[in-house]
């Protein structure tokens, strides 16, 4: 069984495999599929609770993944300041793994696709992809 502790490496390998054998378009289609089919819990939380739903979702996942981050949630917006992304940390520590060059991009596609359906703008800034530092900013869309 591929354990949860090995999943990030397996995920990374799948991105590389898809791109090498079927092109970048295939990786994008896979990410879209994950977002549409497998993040129903995030979609439900955002549709029902808005920013509080985002806070709930990422507090749960980032705690389980032991990320080092700060999170702020107000009525107007939501931010995650990621200091040490747990996934990137796993790929850095396991030196026998060749990291997929666009690994971090999946966080843009997966979440933007959901959050922007509910009246928000989602932006991710990659501050240091090698070290796993990024900033996610969500704001309410203005009419």
């Amino acid at each position: 069984m591929v354990s949860c502790t090995e999943f990030i490496m397996a995920y990374n390998e799948l991105f590389s495999y898809l791109e090498e054998h079927h092109g970048e378009k295939s990786v994008i289609e896979f990410w879209q599929g994950i977002s549409d089919n497998f993040l129903q819990n995030l979609r439900q939380l955002v549709s029902q609770k808005g920013i509080q739903g985002m806070k709930e979702y990422w507090t749960h996942t980032l705690t389980e993944e032991r990320a080092k981050y700060d999170m702020t949630a107000t009525e107007e917006g939501f931010t995650i300041e990621m200091y040490e992304c747990p996934s990137v940390g796993i790929l850095r520590r396991n030196r026998h793994i060749q990291r997929y060059s666009k690994y971090c991009q999946h966080c843009d596609l997966l979440y933007k696709r959901i959050i922007e359906d509910y009246g928000f703008c989602y932006k991710i800034e990659y501050l240091d992809q090698e070290m796993g530092r990024c900033r996610v900013t969500v704001r309410k869309k203005r009419d």
Partner: peptide, 11 residues
């Protein structure tokens, strides 16, 4: 050890 078991679904 805390693990994120939803990874099984993604895999």
């Amino acid at each position: 050890i805390d693990i994120h078991k939803d990874f099984h679904g993604s895999f």
